[in-house]
Design a protein around this nucleic acid. Structure first.
Lengths: 355, 355
DNA sequence: TTATGATGCTTAAACGATTAAGCAACGATT
DNA sequence: AATCGTTGCTTAATCGTTTAAGCATCATAA
């Protein structure tokens, strides 16, 4: 092919047609004034040569890279797939690519990761911080997805309300003795959820909160939570703050011969991948990641656009229209009405699992 | 600050010091000949002005964007966090950023996703294809992470050998009646694992393979797998091809009152996040994602470098040094020696769970 | 017929970095 | 003293795109 010789760039196309590169640019972008006939010929030629505009040149000229950064406190998070998928989709719809950066849960590495993104020329970023972490000031638009309790937050699921819904649901099923299970009291998200759950239960309810982090500090990671013991003490429901904890509770109860949901109800949060397929399927709260991602991207894009004409860089937070996105209760089978008989009577004798 | 006035680019620094921009470039990159003294002053000034090189300009001039693409068949995959984390790390170590693209499991969208990446100027990409999918020819270096059985593959875990290890392990525990559980027979990865498991079991073993996709086609998603029934028919172990399936089996058995591992052993694959924390903790196979990612990135980077001087673009596969990465058996508690008594005798009478 | 304004194109200057080539000054070599 | 190589810097071109400004040409309106 001799046509391979001509480089597939604007000047190449221009040369091939005997016009100026500006005209080609105008024709392809539909901006300037180009006759329909020539415009057509240019488009055809561009296609024929397999023209792909140089993102570098465009970015250099326009000052816009068309790339956003996604900063995650810890990629190895079971919610991450959902998040990444939603963000990628929303960004793509807005015409942006997504560069990922993992801060490995380390605060200092978070700054490092953010800097790497800036060096790569991102126009803005979505940050999903580690519990409690504040975002360093960075002169680039940032949208934060966290809990509504976090200052400087942009968008988030309404974790508190999600807890409220679960709490009310359990209360409606007649549960008066509920163990609330979370991992770390430093997390705003977890605190919101716990607070919501407590608020949703009846005022007379007996609740106890189990912090897994404390337990594991004493007994090592992956230790038993002692939930069977709680059942023996009259608790009938376990409201956890994550499907991962729910799974842990569920299997531990089942392993000790306590039937779920007949003898104890278990609820989770986030509708993670296994929630629908375990037995019994987990009743949980789902967040509308698509809406959250869209809101975050919309806010971010607006901030980016606002930056252009504005004299002041006005570094800092970005405010979205919607900052709280409602969560949805997904009712499956792991929670059921409280047994009429006191649950103590129904406990099966258990064998050799004092791990 | 008046120093805010001067733009933080090469010419800005040059102007501030009264030297040429070429010298500044040389000083910062350490390439040309610049006196140590001036070099120092330049570096200090750059720092003072908060200079960040323009990736666009650099990419335009050098033709290298420093960005790789990560194409995933389906981001909403529980292994994805591990993959993304490992790839991001390996890429960052090699000086590359990672742009993500999700093809939502759709083959046509995969091509679309790949094109979007190319339009964004990636220098190469890592593709983790959907089962059986072939990668379209694209004139950009590509490294594929899949099963070694996939033609055109670059790097992969040795899934067959992983299966072999699990099979042998179960055989060593005395299991002769094993149900192998996978999702889809179209997947090379799953087939490799299944084949390995079968090969690892004793020749005399009775095996049966359960394809979840078939089951769900009949009974709907998230349906019971009927594993308790298998136990009643004398099967003592369930070797699954993913921790997700293992979890499904485990909870179903537990729900039906069959103690794991006392009455039935269960093994998984991939050491997903919940594997260590469920009760009993899952015995599973782990792949060394870090090594896989490193091998893939190394091969990809080499291909990118080779492209530069080479006349022929020579589009197509990239060959890595290591193409099979060994898997590691993680022994936990979900698999144990086969009970001496025939398991049939030990089945507890079960209640009301005919879902 | 002559302003007036579209219309259709070209010219040329950016954007910010890299890098080949060149040039002055200086010390060392013969 | 003339030559050579080295050192330390500058000049200027280049990557491919966008876009403001300019310049013909032609139709329309006065």
């Amino acid at each position: 092919m001799a046509s391979d010789k001509v480089s597939a760039n604007l000047t190449g196309i221009a040369a091939a047609l005997g016009v100026s590169s500006a005209t080609v640019s105008n024709a392809l972008s539909g901006k300037g004034r180009v006759s329909a006939e020539l415009s057509d010929r240019i488009r055809r030629k561009a296609m024929e040569l397999g023209y792909v505009p140089s993102p570098a040149a465009r970015a250099l000229r326009t000052g816009r890279s068309g790339v956003l950064g996604l900063v995650l406190a810890d990629i190895a998070n079971p919610l991450f797939p959902q998040i990444a998928q939603a963000i990628e989709k929303a960004a793509a719809d807005a015409g942006f690519g997504v560069l990922i950066a993992d801060s490995h849960g380390d605060v200092s590495k978070q700054t490092e990761a953010i800097n790497r993104l800036i060096e790569r020329g991102v126009e803005g970023m979505i940050v999903i911080p580690r519990r409690g972490t504040r975002i360093v000031d960075v002169d680039c638009p940032v949208a934060v997805i966290d809990s509504p309790s976090t200052p400087g937050n942009t968008v988030a699921a309404d974790h508190w309300d999600g807890g409220l819904q679960i709490g009310r649901y359990l209360a409606g099923l007649g549960h008066q003795d509920v163990v609330i299970i979370a991992r770390n009291p430093d997390s705003n998200v977890q605190n919101d959820r716990v607070g919501g759950i407590r608020a949703g239960l009846s005022a007379a309810a007996r609740t106890e909160t189990l912090w897994i982090a404390h337990l594991e500090q004493q007994h090592g990671e992956g230790c038993r939570l002692g939930v069977a013991e709680k059942v023996r003490h009259g608790f009938t429901a376990f409201a956890t703050v994550s499907d991962l904890h729910a799974l842990r509770v569920l299997t531990e109860l089942q392993d000790e011969g306590i039937a779920v949901p007949q003898l104890a109800s278990v609820t989770g949060f986030d509708d993670l991948i296994w929630a629908p397929v375990v037995t019994p399927a987990l009743t949980t709260m789902r967040m509308d990641m698509t809406r959250i991602a869209e809101a975050a991207i919309t806010a971010l894009v607006r901030a980016i656009d606002a930056r252009d004409p504005a004299a002041r860089p006005s570094a800092g937070g970005v405010i979205a229209d919607i900052s709280k996105v409602a969560m949805e209760l997904v009712i499956r089978r792991s929670a059921a009405a409280k047994n009429k008989k006191t649950s103590k009577d129904k406990i099966l004798p258990v064998g050799e699992q004092t791990s």
